[in-house]
Design a protein around this nucleic acid. Structure first.
Length: 324
DNA sequence: TAACCGTGGCT
DNA sequence: TAGCCAAGGTT
């Protein structure tokens, strides 16, 4: 098993075939919208082909959108669906989660992976309850100030839940833009200023259209313009796609090494936490010792979990999920 | 900036 | 089969 790897890049920052020189020179707030020829086909495609996901239904509300965004960070939709439903049924409002021990969030997170997200979602619920009267804020800066929310998630919640106009730049959208506009197979490894500028330039002027565009361009990347085995024959903007018109050149250069997973601290942490999730009483050290043979790494992993706040050490060599 | 942080399905 | 891949955030 390996950890996630992102493809390397060659994107020339400002070599954007689809944009006029004036458009490239202009920085931020648009007077006229760039890339407007992409908006209608992508949004129309979305209207017809969008998946019916629970967090897209009106009854999900801003809290449902926010919960889904936390769970979807690096985790596939199909694995999120059942946990999302259980989560919202148990904690229908931020205050409901805030009233629980953080360890309950970690337990309910199950095997979604990256359990620190569960802790941060709990922390965000506490902050929303304390600072925002229990309502998920719609302001980008206020969202960004919450634990576990970065640039992408703040924009996604503001856009999807409140219809605000933000560039929502996730891995799907970055790949769509890299191909359709920049003409490269993959976006850069890390998000660049040029990508942000491009995303802002492509954002429709109208607020509700911008929100629709954000969801539609992301869905296109998830369903059609995928990382591997892309389906150009189903793509609404294939005719103007810079990468396709260039003959779909494959990325050149050394592939970035993916971190191996087997034998890493991450694997050990996962095994340790799995024991504590299943237990409903404090667990003795001896039970944790069984999950990994190598004592030094085992101790390091446990220490890491404790310092992350995912595990609470008790007197007498007992451990449990955090109660406070 | 780059490393770190889980998990399981797919090819 | 073993590497690839999935709606990132934090340090």
């Amino acid at each position: 098993m390996t950890a996630p790897t992102k493809p390397p890049h060659t994107t020339p920052a400002d070599a954007v075939p689809g944009l006029s020189r004036r458009a490239r020179a202009r920085d931020e707030e648009p007077g006229e919208t760039v890339g407007a020829h992409l908006h209608a086909p992508v949004i129309d495609w979305f209207d017809e082909h969008a998946r019916d996901l629970p967090w897209r239904r009106p009854e999900a509300g801003a809290w449902g959108v926010m919960v889904s965004e936390f769970m979807l960070q690096q985790t596939p939709v199909n694995r999120v669906l059942p946990i999302y439903e259980q989560w919202l049924a148990r904690w229908p409002r931020p205050a409901d989660l805030a009233a629980e021990a953080p360890g309950e969030a970690v337990r309910a997170w199950g095997r979604l992976g990256y359990p620190r997200r569960a802790l941060r979602l709990h922390g965000a619920a506490v902050a929303i309850t304390e600072r925002h009267g229990g309502d998920v804020p719609s302001d980008h800066a206020q969202l960004l100030a919450l634990p576990g929310i970065g640039e992408y998630t703040a924009a996604a919640v503001a856009s999807f839940a409140y219809g605000r106009r933000h560039a929502v730049l996730d891995t799907n959208v970055r790949r769509v833009f890299a191909r359709a506009v920049s003409g490269t197979q993959y976006p850069p490894n890390a998000t660049t200023a040029a990508e942000r500028k491009l995303a802002r330039a492509l954002l429709p002027d109208d607020e509700s259209t911008a929100a629709r565009w954000a969801a539609a361009s992301m869905e296109l990347g998830a369903l059609v313009c995928t990382a591997k085995n892309e389906s150009c024959h189903r793509c609404p903007i294939a005719a103007s796609c810079a990468w396709r018109l260039a003959g779909k050149p494959e990325h050149e250069g050394p592939p970035r090494r993916g971190q191996t997973y087997a034998g890493t601290d991450r694997q050990v942490r996962g095994k340790l936490l799995a024991v504590l999730r299943e237990a409903h009483a404090p667990v003795p050290q001896s039970a944790l010792d069984r999950v990994w043979h190598e004592p030094v790494q085992r101790a390091r992993a446990l220490d890491g979990l404790v310092s992350d706040g995912l595990v609470e050490p008790l007197a007498g060599g007992l451990y449990r999920l955090p109660q406070g």
